[in-house]
Design a protein around this nucleic acid. Structure first.
Length: 734
DNA sequence: GACCTGCTGCGGTATG
């Protein structure tokens, strides 16, 4: 192990020495052999700033140092900003070895791209979309430039797993191996990530056809400790005016906790981000101190975001960013003093990623969660009485800290939208291609292995009928009229969908953009970029909203869908309510991590849970309404709701609790019993009643039956639901 | 009671 670094290229060793490192980290030593040999894929799982990128590049660069014909390393990133960071970080190492590094994305310098075109060599840093555009526009160059490719590395791999974009990436990598004649002798892939749940399943997500084995390298000694606290707040119902709004208590605490240091506050929605930033900036103003609270989210312009990122990184002025997931991935902002999560996190995986942003110079990570619950009244719902937002937050903390568990990706998705995209892309790339070639490349040996021959045939014939593709007399498929039009536009390269957005302009300055699904009226007051504005003009043609500064205002309504809580999280919530205790057991001790308000809110919830005997009660009759407590994830909850609606009930779900209006519990139970024994109700059947099934970018071009099947696989799980209902009915005592 | 990511080629004008 000590001598591992001696296998690296001499100049790489010199570079390590120059950095003043006394030795390589464990993961860096472990990565040397597998990457130098290049006979396996490698998965490197280690926390942020543990040196994952170097763990790959030190041996990979050593492996290509002697042979500079063509591009040797292909680095793929989900973000342009990461490519720019990586370009900067690789500069000194690449200089020593006289290696060319080329960042290649929509905004990178044309000069460096054309240099690579003339003289392909060294390292290319690229996005999946830019790689797709190279395939379609210049696959001949790709074939010659990458002929000598030794390694592919994917950064922030968790951001791809289970998504449309991830499937696109896998398809691109497979097409690359095919183009280079490397299907039998695959190019080794390395995946880097800090947040991977169920590690042993990840290699299949990296190479679904298993044509190479995968070596897993995991950081063992995690020296970093975690300090964490859940703080509770109560939203009072007293008359407007003298009410102590929980929001102000939250902001008072944020002001006290964050002022004077560097912090990240994750607020979960762009509108809440704007509200908190505005209130905190006002507090600075009324206290006559310089403002150090700024918003950061996807609707803000690149310039505003980059200014804030630079301010955080420089560490000259104390800075707190109130942000959405834009600051979750590894953009270079250095480490911050602490991370605050306001309202419950959406998933443990993202909580873990956020937590990793704090902890300076080997110090502890500090994470606080600020959770607000409503004051209880006679009319309070079960959700309020059970304090579900707080209980969910506590359960997530336990799963993160004690179980080290994160949500795995949903592997049941069919990705038909991306399959259609890839059929068009392949046809555009080759000019003409046979149906059986497409099938074997994408489905039989490629990443769409779940697609049946029948589905594939149906898709192709529908694409023919809609003029996306045309079959020549020779049997070859070429692009049809509609297919030409779609693939010729630059918007084709990305497989994910973006809603139309309006630009928000004040004077001559663009402040950012807003999705059009929010209704904005002239004269309306909005909060944007941390300030208040009044809308002067909405230009529908130019998609511009003109605004002026204003004194007061309501926040813009941002659109969006619901979220999916995993089975494991709901089971953990059930468990802590049953036990009446959420504290984490460490040896003989039980660690308290909630403040007094959060403790008493939890006690209220546990008392209600016990009094109503909810450990053993799944069906509750409340007047003429029936309530079902399943403690299952949202896929099962949604399936039960759809089943009940299909049987004529007025059912809905809130925070995982199913409510059926004007229904007798016994009738609901009978309906569920009949569903259980009825073999004819399938997920497809349930999906038929959904009015809008087109969700992904190319869904609108799919034949009805595939659209149905794709939606059904995403939203419903009939088998697990039947099992869950069996369990619920066994416990039922009428 | 949601969030985020990415993409081209060309024509116009300004600047050195």
């Amino acid at each position: 192990m000590i001598d591992a670094h001696e296998k690296l290229d001499f100049r790489v060793q010199q570079w390590i020495f120059k950095q003043g490192w006394d030795r390589l980290r464990e993961i860096q030593c472990l990565a040397i052999d597998p990457i130098l040999t290049g006979c396996t894929d490698v998965l490197i799982s280690a926390s942020t700033a543990a040196g994952k990128t170097e763990a790959f590049f030190l041996p990979a660069i050593s492996a290509i140092a002697e042979d500079k014909r063509g591009v040797g390393i292909l680095y793929i990133s989900p973000l342009k900003a990461l490519i720019n960071d990586q370009d900067r970080r690789l500069e000194s190492l690449a200089d020593i070895l006289d290696l060319q590094v080329t960042p290649w994305h929509g905004d990178s310098a044309q000069g460096r791209k054309s240099k690579l075109k003339r003289n392909p060599s060294g390292i290319v840093l690229i996005t999946p979309e830019s790689l797709e555009s190279l395939f379609i526009r210049d696959s001949g160059w790709v074939k010659s430039a990458f002929q000598n490719l030794k390694h592919i590395v994917i950064d922030e791999f968790h951001a791809f797993i289970g998504t449309e974009r991830g499937h696109h990436l896998l398809s691109l990598l497979h097409r690359l191996e095919h183009l280079l004649g490397r299907l039998k002798n695959p190019i080794p892939r390395t995946a880097l990530s800090a947040t991977l749940g169920e590690l042993e399943t990840v290699p299949l997500s990296l190479r679904p056809n298993k044509s190479l084995p995968c070596k897993i390298i995991k950081q063992t000694q995690s020296s970093a400790s975690l300090k964490m606290q859940v703080k509770g707040y109560i939203e009072t119902n007293t008359a407007v005016g003298d009410a102590v709004r929980a929001e102000h208590l939250v902001c008072n605490d944020l002001y006290e906790l964050c002022r004077g240091g560097n912090h990240l506050v994750f607020a979960n929605s762009r509108s809440r981000t704007e509200i908190l930033a505005a209130v905190l900036a006002d507090m600075c103003e009324s206290n006559a101190v310089p403002n150090e609270f700024f918003p950061h989210h996807g609707s803000l312009s690149k310039e505003m975001r980059e200014t804030l990122e630079a301010r955080l990184q420089q560490e000259r002025l104390p800075t707190t960013a109130i942000c959405t997931m834009t600051l979750e991935l590894g953009i270079d902002i250095g480490k911050v003093n602490s991370v605050v999560q306001v309202t419950a996190p959406h998933s443990i995986a993202s909580l873990r990623q956020r937590m990793g942003r704090s902890g300076r110079r080997g110090g502890a990570s500090i994470l606080r969660m600020l959770i607000t619950e409503n004051e209880l009244t006679e009319q309070s719902s079960i959700v309020d009485q059970l304090r579900l937002e707080l209980v969910q937050s506590l359960a997530m903390v336990r799963l993160l800290v004690a179980n080290k568990w994160y949500e795995p990706a949903d592997s049941s998705l069919l990705h038909f939208s991306t399959l259609l995209h890839q059929i068009l892309a392949l046809t555009a790339q080759w000019g003409g291609i046979r149906a059986d070639q497409i099938y074997s490349l994408l489905c039989k040996d490629g990443p769409f292995q779940h697609v049946t021959v029948a589905h594939f045939k149906c898709l192709l014939s529908h694409m023919g009928n809609t003029e996306l593709i045309t079959q020549l007399g020779s049997g070859e498929l070429v692009l049809g009229h509609a297919g030409e039009k779609i693939t010729n536009h630059y918007s084709f390269y990305a497989v994910f969908k973006t809603p139309e957005e309006f630009r928000i302009v004040s004077g001559s300055k663009t402040l950012g953009t807003l999705p059009v699904d929010s209704l904005i009226l002239e004269g309306q007051h909005i909060v944007f970029a941390g300030r208040r504005w009044v809308v002067e003009l909405v230009d529908v043609e130019k998609k511009v909203i003109l605004v002026n500064r204003a004194k007061g205002g309501q926040p813009p309504k941002f659109g969006g869908a619901g979220m999916a809580i995993h089975d494991v999280v709901r089971q953990e919530m059930f468990k802590i309510l049953c036990e009446g205790d959420y504290k984490i057991k460490v040896g003989e001790h039980r660690i308290e991590f909630a403040d007094e308000t959060a403790q008493s809110l939890f006690q209220e919830a546990a008392k209600f849970f016990q009094t109503a005997n909810l450990a053993k009660t799944n069906f509750i009759q409340q007047g003429n309404r029936t309530v079902i407590l399943t403690w299952a994830g949202d896929k099962i909850v949604n399936t039960i709701v759809a089943v009940l609606i299909s049987k004529g009930f007025a059912a809905g779900a809130f925070a995982g609790i199913i409510e059926i209006e004007k229904a007798d519990a016994q009738d609901v139970i009978d309906a569920l019993k009949s569903f259980q024994t009825d073999g004819t109700i399938s997920a497809d059947q349930l999906a038929k009643s959904i009015p809008e099934k087109a969700i992904d970018k190319f869904d609108e071009y799919l034949p009805e039956n595939l659209l149905l099947a794709g939606y059904a696989a995403r939203a419903f799980d009939v088998l697990s639901t039947k099992l869950k209902i069996k369990e619920l009915l066994t416990d039922f005592v009428s």
